[in-house]
Design a protein around this nucleic acid. Structure first.
Lengths: 200, 200, 200, 200
DNA sequence: ATCTAAGCGAGACGGTACGTCAAGTCTTGTT
DNA sequence: AACAAGACTTGACGTACCGTCTCGCTTAGAT
C-alpha cells in the first residue's frame, strides 16, 4: 500500500520560496501578497494554498530553508577557539547586506504578528548565537573569569536584541554602539575580571 | 480675513486615536483597518483621511500622544539619584502589562515597515532611556568608574533591544535574562570597575 | 432628516444591465460571468454585488427593464379588434430575431434554475398574452362561439409553451407546427364552432 | 490483433450515471459539478473525462439510458386503441413525481445551453408522443374527422410545450390548463368535428 | 508464465471565477 | 469649512471547479 497520486512538485515549492524571498526583499512585508507570489513564481494560488496556510507560513519556510540566514558564521563554527569579535563582525556584515536587511526586516515584522515566525527566527538566528556563547562561557568558566550571573541565554538575547534594534532603526541605528556592546561583552568574557567591561 | 468655516473637531481626533489604540490592543497591527477605526470611533473615513495619511500616521500620533508610552518612569525622572534598578523594573513591569504589550507589539511591527514610526518610537522610548543614562554616566564619570568606550547611546540601545526581544519572542522570552542584562549594566556603571558585572 | 451620502449611480446600473444583455446574447447564459459583466460594463464587482445578489438577479432586472421583451405587440394592443393572427406572427417574428432568441434562451435557462426568474418571465411574456386572450374571449363569448372549457390561461399557456419549444429545439423546431397551432386556436375562437379548428 | 489491456469498467459507468442523476435531482443542474459526480460515484475525474467530454454529455447519456424518461406510456404502447386521455394523464403523473420534476428540470435547462441535449430530449420525449399521435391521426383520418391542417408534429409540439411550461413555471403552473389543453386536443381528434373542443 | 497495453483511483497542477473585504476617493446633504 | 453617510474603483483575499497531468496499481489479451 504505497502513496498514490502525482507527487508534489519540488519545482513549484522552490519557485514559491524564491519568489517570496525576492518580493520581500523588493517591497517589504507590507507589500507582499499571495497574488504576487503566484504571479512571479508561476505557481497557481490554489497550489500555494494547498501547501501553505498563510503568507507567514511561506516566510517561515523560507527561514527554515536557509534562504534568509545561512547559519551566520557557520563556516567557522567548528572551532571553539574562534575569535568572537571576528565572528560577530561577520554576522553584522551579513546583516548589513541590503538584501538581507530587507528580507530580515520582513520576517521580523511578521514575528511581531505571528509567534510561530518568531520562534522559528530565534531558532535560526538566536539559538546558534546562544550555542556559541555556551561554548565560550565554558572555556571562560574553566579559567574562572566569568561572573555567575552571566548566562549564554542572556548574552544571546542581548546580541539578538542588537540586531532587532539595527533593523528597527533603519538608517538611524548607531552602528558603533552595536559594536561597542559586543566588544564589552566579549572583552569581559574573554578577559575575565579586567577592570573595564561594563555591558553596553 | 480669518479662517472661515467649522473648526476641526477635537472630539473626532480623540475618538480616532482611542479607537486605534483599542483595536491594536484587541486584534494586533495586522487586523487593524481604517474601516474598523471609522466604525468604532464614529468618525467617517473621509475625515480620517483628511487628517492622517495612513494607518501608520494614526499609530504614530498615538505614540506622540503618550497613549502608548506615558514616559516610563517619568514620575521619578526629576531625581538624578533615582535607583536605576528600580527604574528599569518599573519599565519592564509597564511593558509586561497585557494591553501595553499588544499595543507596543503593533507599533514595533509598524516600525519595521515604516521608518517614520520607528523614529517616533525611539524618540519616545529610546531617547528618554538615553537621557537618563547620560545623567548616570556623568555622575559615574565624575567618580571615574566608567570605561571610556561605554556611551549612553550604546547602553540605551541595549535596553531598547531587550524590549524588542521581549516583544518579539512573545511568551518564550527569557525574563530573567533581560533582568540579568540590566543588572550587569547598572552594576558596572554604578559600582565602577568591580570585578563582577560583565554585560550579558 | 434627509437621505445622506452619495446617490446610487444610474449610469452604473444601466451599464451593468446593458453589458449583461449583450453578453447573454453573445455567449449564452452558461458563459455569462459576473467578472465579464464587470469588465464590459466598467462597473466594479463590489458595486455589482452591492446591488444584485446574483447573476440571475441582474438578468431578472433586465427582463423587468424591458430590455428583453419590449411588450411584444404592445404597439397594437390598444385595439381589441386587432387581428389575432397578425399579432401572433409579430410575436413570433420578434422571437426569431437572433439577438432576442439568444437572450430569451438565456433567461429561460435561468428560469429552470430559479423560480424568481420564471415568475418574472411569465409576468412579462405570458401574462400579456393571457390578457389579450381574455379580451378576445370576451368578445367571442358575446357571440356565443366559445366552448366553456376554454380559458384564457390555457390558451396563453399553450402559446407560451410553443415559444419555449421553439427556443428549446434550437434550429430543429418545426416552425410550421407552431403557426398551425396558433391558427387552430384563433380560428376556433374567432370563427366559433366551425367544423375545422381542433387545437393542434 | 485484438485490443489489449483492461476493459472499460461497466461498474464505473453506471456509478457515474447514477450519481449524476441523484445530484441533479438533489441540487439542480446549476449545482451539478464533475467534482461532485466523481466524489459521489467513487470514480476518478480522469476516468470521467476519458469517457465523457462534458457534464452535458453525461446528462445526455442519462437520458439515453432511460434513467430520466422510461418511455412514458411504453407499457401500453402496443395498443393503438389505448385511451389517449389515460395515456396523457399517466405522462403528467410521471412528470409530477418530485424526482422526475427535478431531474427533467435539469435536463431541460441544459437543453437551452446545448442543442445536443435538446435533440436527445426531444427524441426521447417528443418523438414517442409524435409517433402515438401519428397512429391516432391515421385512424381518425380514416373516419374523416380530422382537419387537414392538423399534424402529428404540431400536436406533439403542443404537448411537449405543455410539459416545458409546467417545468418552467415551477409551482405556479396552472395544472388544470394543461389538462384542458389536452382534453381539447383529444376530444376534437377522437370525436371529430364536434362543435365543442377547440384547443385552448 | 511472462510481457505489455490499456483502465483506473488518487491527487497535484495551472487556471478562471467566485463572493468578500478593505483601501482610498468622491459626492451629497447637514451642522 | 468640516463633517456623516455612503457609493464608487481597485486589488487582494481564500475557495471551488475546471480540465490536464503524473503516479502506482490492476486487469487481461498477446507472446
Amino acid at each position: 500500500m504505497e502513496r498514490r497520486g502525482r507527487v508534489r512538485s519540488e519545482e513549484a515549492r522552490t519557485a514559491v520560496l524564491t519568489a517570496t524571498r525576492d518580493l520581500t526583499i523588493g517591497g517589504g512585508y507590507a507589500h507582499l501578497t499571495i497574488e504576487k507570489i503566484a504571479a512571479q513564481s508561476g505557481v497557481s494560488k490554489a497550489t500555494i494554498y494547498r501547501w501553505w496556510s498563510s503568507k507567514n507560513a511561506i516566510l517561515a519556510e523560507c527561514v527554515l530553508e536557509g534562504m534568509v540566514l545561512p547559519d551566520p558564521g557557520a563556516a567557522a563554527s567548528d572551532a571553539i577557539g574562534i575569535d568572537a569579535a571576528d565572528w560577530f563582525r561577520a554576522v553584522l556584515a551579513y546583516i548589513d547586506e541590503p538584501d538581507t536587511t530587507a528580507l530580515l526586516r520582513g520576517i521580523v515584522a511578521a514575528s511581531y504578528e505571528d509567534p510561530t515566525i518568531a520562534r522559528l527566527l530565534y531558532e535560526r538566528l538566536g539559538a546558534p548565537i546562544e550555542a556559541r556563547f555556551t561554548q565560550w562561557l565554558q572555556s571562560a568558566n574553566a579559567r574562572g573569569t566569568v561572573p555567575a550571573a552571566v548566562t549564554a541565554g542572556a548574552a544571546a538575547q542581548v546580541l539578538f536584541g542588537s540586531i532587532l534594534v539595527r533593523l528597527a532603526l533603519w538608517d538611524d541605528a548607531d552602528e558603533d554602539a552595536t559594536a561597542a556592546v559586543f566588544d564589552a561583552i566579549t572583552t569581559s568574557l574573554e578577559l575575565g575580571g579586567a577592570p573595564a567591561a561594563p555591558a553596553p
